[in-house]
Write a protein that binds this DNA or RNA. Structure first.
Lengths: 101, 101
DNA sequence: GACATATTTGCGCAAATATGCAATTATAAG
DNA sequence: CTTATAATTGCATATTTGCGCAAATATGTC
């Protein structure tokens, strides 16, 4: 695990490690179809601008994808991508220690 | 997933989502035996007081355990505990959507 | 074009966070 | 008791972060 990978992973965990953002991710987990921001707004205690900013963070970290559909923008969870990166962390934690120390 | 569980999980992710703290966790992953703070200090770019504070955060989140051995305090990673909580997140993400929306 | 709805952005603010340095505490060794 | 090492804590500071509000932007409808 080099420094870049560590920073990338830290970015993911940091993005997920905020309660309202994690709530947005939970909400998206439960939805078959992409959701717009107004809908997602209901699941967390911030106004639309706050949700917009949180979704931007999640998007920048590759956690969600967005696609404009008319007036709305539909967000969906990148399940496979998030899982892949979480499993990377798990592998590191599960791995047997290398050094004798 | 209720609110308390979400907050608890967000706390874990937030603690891990800081580069220097994640570096400390990586370091502990690679060590068979518990490490003292001076040793852990080498793997991240903060002074001893900073490492002490980061280790305190990790300890409060149940990520590491500490035990005083003479002059030193030895830290070890709570592998099983961290894995258990990460798998909880993974289960949520892997789960099939409940709602039709 | 006028209006409505959805989303983003600029701004300011308060709270949280990370950090280094110096002082303090805890323990061991002489 | 004095000294040395390990770790924590108080303090000051700089930066980041989350938030709401109002304004701006984007798109659809009439």
């Amino acid at each position: 695990m080099n420094k870049n990978e560590a920073q990338e992973l830290a970015g993911l965990l940091k993005a997920l490690g905020e309660f309202n953002r994690l709530s947005l991710v939970y909400k998206l987990c439960q939805c078959k179809v992409p959701q717009n921001a107004m809908c997602l707004c209901e699941c967390c205690s911030v106004d639309a601008s706050g949700v917009s900013r949180h979704l931007k963070v999640l998007s920048q970290e590759g956690i969600v994808s967005s696609a404009r559909k008319g007036r709305e923008i539909q967000y969906s969870l990148n399940r496979a991508e998030v899982l892949k990166r979480l499993y990377k962390l798990i592998e590191i934690i599960e791995a047997e220690p290398l050094s004798e120390t």
